[in-house]
Amino acid sequence: MANDLGVVGVIERLWRYPIKSTGGERLRSAEVDARGLVGGRLYAVRDAEGRFGSGKTTRRFRRMDGLLHLSSRYPGYPRNSPEPGPPELLDPHGKVVADPTAYLRTFLGREDLELAREGEVSHFDQLPLSVLSTATLARIRQEVPDVPVDERRFRPNILVRTPPGTPPFVEDAWIGRTARVGDTLRVEFLRSSERCVMTNQAQQDLPHSPLILRAIAAVHGNRLDALAGIVTPGTARIGDVLELL
């Protein structure tokens, strides 16, 4: 599939995470604006200090183990809507909860939590868009053959199906390049993600394993994916070509 035009693969899966640090929703297509996938990480679990639930503790984030057992989705908002309404929160069995804030307080055992929409402080750890290749995903699977691994551990927005023979960590070659996705979307790859213990954490049918982060550290300096900023908003769809310009 690689050629002189710079085609590196096609979109195999699209993921959006309406509530930061919860499981996401798979989409057939997604609108992408300057902020990223429309509605992505627009909501987060916030504590009394104003920190957002995450897999790590920093100035903006607080580690809240258990969020990955939950998931979130937007229940079918119109394509011409500028922004989806509040997301649904789903429990570990996939059932929609009636009161997300009340449920989160009970589930996480903290009374100072609330589900909050993004305000002046960004919910993003880094850049708007994370892109991961199947070649890289396959290499991580080789490193930990006894541990179930799929892209959910790494929370990309776009999983790109790369052709046979593509080397792992091909994303490194994208850094500093602009790419076209489908007909209109243009992105600029700027750097990769430095991974944290969130990759090890259990979620739904994926068990906890410290081997995941160790493998990434050993084979690729603890970095995985390509992070991009948005140059021209547009639409991403399953089957769209990713072409380096």
Rank of each mutant, 00 (worst) to 15 (best):
R195W: 01
G229V: 14
G76M: 03
R35F: 08
L159Q: 02
A2H: 14
A138Y: 01
V241P: 03
T136L: 12
Q204L: 14
D183L: 09
V8M: 07
L115Q: 03
V97G: 12
P87N: 11
N80L: 13
P156Y: 02
G9W: 07
L67G: 11
A215C: 06
L127W: 10
P210G: 03
V7A: 12
A44Q: 05
R16P: 00
L108R: 06
T134D: 02
R223A: 11
M198K: 00
I238C: 02
W174K: 08
R139L: 13
P167T: 11
Y17N: 06
R46W: 04
F107Q: 04
D225R: 02
P128I: 06
D183G: 00
A30V: 09
R177I: 00
D125F: 09
T58A: 13
R63K: 15
A179D: 09
H69S: 14
P92S: 10
R59I: 07
D240S: 07
H69Y: 11
V38A: 11
S209L: 00
G182D: 08
C196A: 01
S133H: 10
E12W: 00
G6I: 03
G50A: 11
R152S: 14
L113G: 14
L108T: 04
D150G: 11
L115R: 02
A48L: 08
D205A: 10
L68K: 06
R60G: 01
